[in-house]
Amino acid sequence: MQEDIKTQQIELKLLLQAIYLQYGYDFRDYALASIKRRITYRLQKDNYPNISAMQHRLLYDVSFFETLLLDLSVNVTEMFRDPEFYKALREKVIPKLAQHSHLKIWHAGCSSGEEVYSMAILLKEAGLYERTQIYATDMNEVILQQAKEGIFPIKRLKQYTENYQKSGGQESFSNYYHAHYEHAVMDNALKKNILFSDHNLATDGVFGEMNLVICRNVLIYFNRELQNRAIRLFNDSLSEQGILCLGSKESIRFSEYSSAYQDLAADEKIYIKNEH
């Protein structure tokens, strides 16, 4: 291996340690390749000669840390992202949820909220929204604030509408937002049962007695240890017959909890917890 690459890897590990000690955000058990690309992006953009020089700034400048924190969280999402997944939710998950008189849903790593509002729409259309409490969490408070506001660029709504229709949506999608200049503002009726709050899968604890936990495209950024920690949190948060949804390239099958779950929709990585 080239010497400079080896040195960079040492600098990277030191930087993550510095972030943890100074700000309490723990990226030390993240998969390093993605983190490194995102750090390198900031390095080049702000013209630092190396990661160590950037670390110095980071330790003394909280606003620089906040910028870096945004760089480090991947906030690429869409409403009804992967329409096939939402189709499976409609067909296989909603009928199970409908058996309960009260519903609790935890959406972990909700980012800017697009997929939380998608879930709210599904519940509304199934007549389940009024009996549901959704907990939407993310480690990043800036992005969580965006999620809470539920204001999205109007130019993205064409794609979202297409996704919605592909997922089996029958309504006119424009019923769910109103256009305001360049933005689409999500309907307040979708927001009232969503509680947005700050939660970090690397350092925080469980949410009690959930009927459904959704956490998509978050585990791919974790190493195996942190993946196991997150899955343990989900497992401890789910009630019997609770349902767990992961991203299409993520799986519970590597973890110690594998045998406690059956596939509900194998291709879409939707699992249901066994009864004891």
């Binding site: 998969a31 390749a33 690309r37 995102r38 991947v74 690429v76 495209n217 791919i220 950024y221 390239k249």
Partner: peptide, 21 residues
């Protein structure tokens, strides 16, 4: 590489996926 994911090699040579921009 799966559609819609970046494919990376991790520092230990294993595969990593990402939905970075």
């Amino acid at each position: 590489a799966p559609p819609n994911y970046h494919l990376l090699l991790e520092l230990d040579g294993s595969f990593a996926l990402s939905i970075m921009p």
